[in-house]
């Protein structure tokens, strides 16, 4: 559809200015890109380069007061690689990310299938409820969940305590790392399931009834139709949703910070985001904080590569 514009602009504008070849190269589309490129260079590019350089320097509290930073090569990375705390944080972050993303995907899939299996009223009710949860700003959602899990007057403890034989009165969810991360995971799942459910549901509605009916006539039961027809057809959606979920569940700084505000700030409650924050803003060790940041960026890019590639393909098709 961009047929007329597909040819190079240089030929479209028969540049009479033969004087400066460099100038001719800066054509209309390049000019249009300048503001976006400038803001990206300032807001993202420069910090990124600074961070890469700083991660190879000994940049601690003395450097904050003007002492020149010494180049230490990969020393910061070596220190990190040999630091058991760092490995614990990395392991915990990855475990949290994978478990939460997997559960989100499973719950989202089940809800999407439920939407297709029930009548209009039930489906709309479910969809509106999911939409409201999805729309909640993260910080507001966090305050509500912290209130729900409040030790003494939270509804969660109240309801659990009503189950016979369960004593959850004044159970402090946020003071033990395991229950702390269970709560974090529940909250993140609550926030992210709506996106998964709606995306998968949109994919499911694309599966044609004719094909399903044909399969039914050929003797495929429900489980077989799901496995051999529906699943292969919605596989691309599921892959992309899972990738995005993995990426998003690595960046849960806001959620963890707010839970730490209400609970404990001890290091057993840290994931990568809060760990970097404490290294940088707390200990003022920018060299180490930069090295961990680079690690997080590399990890994110590794996971998102497939997503970026699929978007690139879409761009080429248009």
């Amino acid at each position: 559809m961009t047929r007329i514009l597909a040819d190079d602009v240089a030929t479209a504008t028969p540049a009479p200015r033969a004087s400066a070849p460099a100038r001719r190269r800066l054509s209309v589309p390049h000019l249009l890109l300048i503001p976006a490129i400038l803001i990206l260079l300032v807001g993202m590019g420069y910090p990124l380069v600074w961070q890469i350089i700083t991660s190879t320097q000994d940049f601690g509290i003395q450097q904050q007061f003007g002492k020149p930073a010494d180049f230490v090569g990969l020393q910061n990375y070596i220190t990190l690689a040999t630091d058991p705390t760092m490995w614990q944080v990395v392991g915990r972050s990855l475990l949290f990310c994978f478990v939460t993303a997997a559960l989100t995907l499973v719950v989202g899939l089940l809800l999407a299938m439920l939407m297709t299996a029930v009548g209009r009223t039930a489906r709309l009710t479910l969809q509106i409820s999911l939409l409201l949860a999805w729309a909640m700003p993260v910080v507001a959602a966090m305050t509500v969940w912290i209130w729900l899990f409040d030790r003494r007057r939270g509804v969660v403890n109240y309801l659990l305590d009503m189950i016979p034989g369960v004593d959850m009165n004044r159970f402090s969810w946020l003071s033990n790392p395991l229950t702390f991360f269970i709560v974090a995971s529940i909250i993140v799942i609550w926030m992210s399931v709506p996106f998964v459910a709606f995306s998968v549901y949109a994919g499911l509605t694309q599966v044609s009834d004719e094909v399903l009916e044909a399969a039914q006539l050929d003797g495929a039961n429900g489980a077989k139709r799901l496995r051999y027809i529906i699943m292969p057809m919605i596989r691309p959606v599921i892959m992309i949703v899972l990738l995005l979920q993995l990426i998003w569940d690595l960046r849960v700084f806001t959620q963890i910070t707010m839970l730490q505000d209400a609970g404990s700030k001890a290091s057993e409650f840290d994931l990568l985001g809060t760990y970097i924050y404490k290294l940088g803003a707390g200990a003022q060790d920018f060299g180490m904080a930069s090295a961990v940041s680079i690690f997080v960026l590399a990890l994110t890019l590794a996971i998102s590569w497939f997503y970026v590639r699929s978007l690139l393909k879409e761009d080429e098709q248009s």
């Binding site: 990206l40 807001g43 993202m44 910090p47 990124l48 600074w50 961070q51 700083t54 990426i247 690595l250 960046r251 700084f253 990568l272 985001g273 970097i276 924050y277 290294l279 940088g280 803003a281 920018f286 904080a289 930069s290 940041s293 680079i294 997080v296 960026l297 994110t300 890019l301 998102s304 997503y307 970026v308």
Partner: peptide
């Protein structure tokens, strides 16, 4: 690619 970069991975540098 920039769209994928998390704030968690850049905020120290942006602060500086």
């Amino acid at each position: 690619i920039v769209q994928m970069l998390p704030a968690e991975g850049l905020f120290i540098a942006q602060y500086k």
